[in-house]
Nucleic acid binder design. Structure first.
Lengths: 113, 113
DNA sequence: TCGATATTTCTGGAATAATCGAAATATCGA
DNA sequence: TCGATATTTCGATTATTCCAGAAATATCGA
């Protein structure tokens, strides 16, 4: 991931509604949720939410697929990994000992091991 | 970390110059760099950069200390860990098996282990 | 104290982003 | 095909962010 792409992804997440949507989709898992369902859950108008979802999609953080009349959105775990990897790799580059505490981030025994 | 604080941190990083500054400081390590040195490295005017540094500081991503005429800025590793932790914890909540690939993020043998 | 260096604060205008109503598109079931 | 449901696109207004010049503040050395 390059800096401009990282800025785009961070910009996409730097908004209360969009971050809430992203977290919701991350929790929803690969099955995802319909756009309307997300709108209801978040409390946003469908057209506004559609804009947000497009932004998240362009940033590579969510994917979409059509299912009948609905469009199902789901978190893009690869995109998320790229973004976090960019930040963490940056952190540890050259001197792993500096960011020791960051190691505990995902090294917790019940998550991502 | 709560959602508003996460949005503030993500907003702070969602800017090409600020993200570049943050990466620079992360690489610089705990010793940090003087504001003027950062400005030169990034290619920004001192006053503009000062604004950026204030934004990063308010977001909890950098710290500052005065050293004579200079102000030394350094990355706030705790703040960074909080932000990444918020995102990763969110990712893995409840179903660790979903984000398996994210585990490789910081589990690489030469970093943060 | 005075001048030089380093950084910050203040200000205003320009660029960008957010939001909503209305209209358009896509799909389904009858 | 037609009406209903689901979502997106368009257009315009409002709000926010970005940036640089000018001035203010802080520190040091002479």
């Amino acid at each position: 991931m390059q800096l401009p792409a990282a800025v785009e992804a961070l910009s996409a997440l730097a908004h209360a509604s969009r971050l809430a949507v992203f977290r919701l989709l991350v929790r929803a898992g690969p099955d995802g949720m319909a756009a309307g369902e997300i709108a209801r859950e978040i409390g946003a108008l469908p057209n506004t939410l559609s804009t947000h979802l497009t932004i998240l999609g362009n940033a590579g953080l969510v994917r979409s697929r059509r299912d009948g009349r609905s469009v199902i959105y789901s978190a893009d775990y690869d995109g998320m990994r790229d973004l976090l990897g960019f930040l963490v790799a940056d952190c540890c580059a050259g001197r792993p000992e500096i960011c020791g505490t960051l190691g505990e981030l995902t090294a917790s025994p019940d998550c991502c091991t």
